[in-house]
C-alpha cells in the first residue's frame, strides 16, 4: 500500500530568505527528502496558494497586515506549524523598528533617509499592506508547534526537524545544534 506523501507548504514573510537558502544547503539530501514529501506552495516552487498540508513552515516575523493574514491562512491549512529561524521565533532584526512607533518607521524609510528624494513627503498607503504597530514573532499571532531558532538554522538542523516530523514526532531542537545567529 502506498501512502500519499505528506505535503509541505512554506512561506517567506518578513525576513531575508536566508532560512530557505539554508534549507537548500541540505544538498543531496533534498533528493531523499523529495522522495518522502511533496513540496507545495513555497518561495522556491513559486506556488502562491496554500493547499491543505501536513506541515506548514513560516520564515520571518509578522510586520504587516498581509503577513499576518498569510500566517493565519497557513495555520488554518496545516497540521504542524514550524517557526523557522530567529525572525519567526523571536522577531529578529525586524524588531529593531519596535523601539519606535510605526509612523516614525514609515517617515524614516520614505522621507527622512538621506538618499531619499521625496520633497512632498508622500508615504504610500494605498498600494502597500499597512504596517502592524510592531513586528511580532509568529507565535504572537498563531499557535506554533515547532520552534527552530537560528539565523539561519543550520541545514542539518532543518533536516533533523523534517526527519523527526516524518517519523511522527514533534521535535525540539537539541541544544548542541541550536543557535541564535
Amino acid at each position: 500500500m502506498t501512502m500519499a506523501k505528506p505535503k509541505i507548504a512554506s512561506v517567506w514573510l518578513e525576513a531575508c530568505a536566508g532560512c530557505h537558502m539554508s534549507f537548500l544547503d541540505i544538498d543531496e539530501r533534498i533528493v531523499d527528502l523529495l522522495g518522502k514529501v511533496e513540496l507545495t506552495a513555497t518561495p522556491i516552487t513559486d506556488i502562491k496558494i496554500f493547499p491543505e498540508v501536513e506541515v506548514g513552515v513560516i520564515e520571518g516575523a509578522l510586520g504587516n497586515e498581509e503577513e499576518l493574514h498569510l500566517a493565519k491562512e497557513l495555520r488554518e491549512r496545516c497540521k504542524i506549524l514550524i517557526a523557522w529561524g530567529d525572525c519567526a521565533v523571536f522577531g529578529g532584526i525586524n524588531c529593531m523598528r519596535n523601539f519606535m512607533p510605526a509612523e516614525q518607521v514609515l517617515k524614516e524609510g520614505y522621507v527622512d533617509t538621506v538618499s531619499t528624494v521625496n520633497p512632498e513627503g508622500v508615504i504610500p498607503r494605498q498600494d502597500l499592506p499597512a504596517l502592524l504597530p510592531q513586528a511580532i514573532p509568529v507565535d504572537r499571532a498563531v499557535k506554533v508547534d515547532v520552534y527552530v531558532p537560528g539565523c539561519p538554522p543550520d541545514a542539518d538542523t532543518i533536516y533533523y526537524v523534517f526527519s523527526e516530523i516524518l517519523e511522527g514526532r514533534i521535535p525540539t531542537v537539541p541544544t548542541d545544534i541550536m543557535r541564535y545567529d
Binding site: G91, P137, V173, P174, T175, M178, Y180
Partner: peptide, 21 residues
C-alpha cells in the same frame, strides 16, 4: 547569556518583549 540560553534549550520567549529603547 546566549550560551546559557542555548544550554537551557530556550527555543522561544514566552513573555512579551518590552522593546523599551
Amino acid at each position: 547569556l546566549q550560551r546559557l540560553a542555548i544550554e537551557h534549550g530556550m527555543d522561544r520567549v514566552r513573555y512579551p518583549f518590552l522593546y523599551e529603547p
